[in-house]
C-alpha cells in the first residue's frame, strides 16, 4: 500500500510538471507546391507540444503575415478559427499567384505559463516554395528574434543537416540554446526516455547551429532567449521567453 501511494504520488508529480517544450507551429499541407498540387497552400497554426500532439490555446495572434519577393502582406484577417490538437488554433488557405518562396510568420500574444513563472512569445515561421522556384529561401524577415536558414528550409532529405543562425534584434546570438522537436503527427514515434522528446543543441560563437534529424517529417527548431523586458502578471513583473521558431520538413529518402 505504501509503495502504491509512493508511486501514485510520483505519478501525480510528473503529471503536474510541464516538462515538455512549447512550440508555435505553422504547418503547410506541403512545403513544396508544384503546379500539379494546385494554386494554393493550406496552413494550420497552433501552439502545442508537438511530439505529444498536445495542443494549447492559441489566442488570435498579434500578427500573421506572408513575405514574398520582399513584400510583406498582412493575413491576420484571413485566419479561420479551428480546433487543432484538441485546442484553439487557426487555418488559412492562401493562393500562390506566382513562383518563389513564401515565408509565413506569426507573432502570438504573450502566453502566460504559471509553471515557468514567465510569459512565452514564439516568433514562428515556415517557408513554402511554389512552382519550382526557390528564390528567396534564405530571406531574413527582421523579426524580434529569428532563425535565419543557412540550409534551404525545404527540399531536404531525411538525415540531411539543417543549419541556421539564431538572431535577436538582427544580431547573431552566440551559443544560443536551440530546442529541437518532431511533430509526431501519425508517425507513432516513441522515446526511451522523456529527455529525448526535446533535444537540445547549442549554436556556436557566431550563432550558427546544426542538426540532422533521424527521420522524415516536420521538425521544429526553437531558439530560446530571455527578453530584455518584462510583462506584468498579478501585479508583478515577469520574465518573457522569446522563441525564434522555424519549422522544416525533411523528405523520405527514396533510394535503396
Amino acid at each position: 500500500m505504501k509503495r502504491f501511494l509512493a508511486t501514485a504520488s510520483i505519478a501525480g508529480l510528473i503529471a503536474a510538471t510541464p516538462a515538455f517544450a512549447h512550440y508555435g507551429m505553422i504547418i503547410p499541407n506541403d512545403p513544396m507546391i508544384s503546379q500539379e498540387d494546385g494554386r494554393s497552400v493550406s496552413l494550420t497554426m497552433s501552439f502545442s507540444h508537438p511530439f505529444e500532439m498536445d495542443g494549447m490555446m492559441l489566442d488570435t495572434p498579434v500578427s500573421f503575415s506572408v513575405t514574398h519577393e520582399g513584400a510583406t502582406t498582412d493575413l491576420l484577417g484571413g485566419l479561420q478559427s479551428e480546433t487543432v490538437m484538441d485546442d484553439q488554433g487557426y487555418t488559412l488557405e492562401y493562393p500562390l499567384d506566382r513562383p518563389g518562396t513564401y515565408i509565413f510568420a506569426m507573432e502570438p500574444q504573450p502566453y502566460w505559463e504559471p509553471a515557468e513563472d514567465a510569459f512565452i512569445i514564439h516568433y514562428t515561421k515556415t517557408y513554402v516554395t511554389a512552382y519550382g522556384d526557390d528564390e528567396g529561401w534564405d530571406s531574413e524577415l527582421g523579426l524580434k528574434t529569428e532563425i535565419v536558414p543557412l540550409t534551404k528550409p525545404f527540399g531536404l532529405w531525411e538525415h540531411n543537416v539543417f543549419q541556421g543562425i539564431v538572431k535577436m534584434d538582427g544580431a547573431p546570438v552566440p551559443y544560443a540554446e536551440v530546442e529541437v522537436e518532431f511533430f509526431n503527427d501519425g508517425a507513432g514515434a516513441t522515446v526511451p526516455d522523456d529527455l529525448m522528446i526535446t533535444q537540445t543543441i547549442k549554436a556556436d560563437a557566431d550563432g550558427v547551429f546544426t542538426y540532422a534529424p533521424p527521420s522524415n517529417g516536420w521538425w521544429g527548431f526553437a531558439a530560446l532567449n530571455t527578453a530584455d523586458y518584462t510583462l506584468p502578471q498579478d501585479g508583478e513583473d515577469k520574465d518573457v521567453e522569446l522563441g525564434a521558431v522555424i519549422w522544416v520538413h525533411f523528405e523520405e529518402w527514396t533510394g535503396q
Partner: peptide
C-alpha cells in the same frame, strides 16, 4: 521534365 529551368505563365 524540369531541368533547373522555371516556367510560369499568368
Amino acid at each position: 521534365a524540369a531541368h533547373q529551368m522555371i516556367v510560369f505563365a499568368s
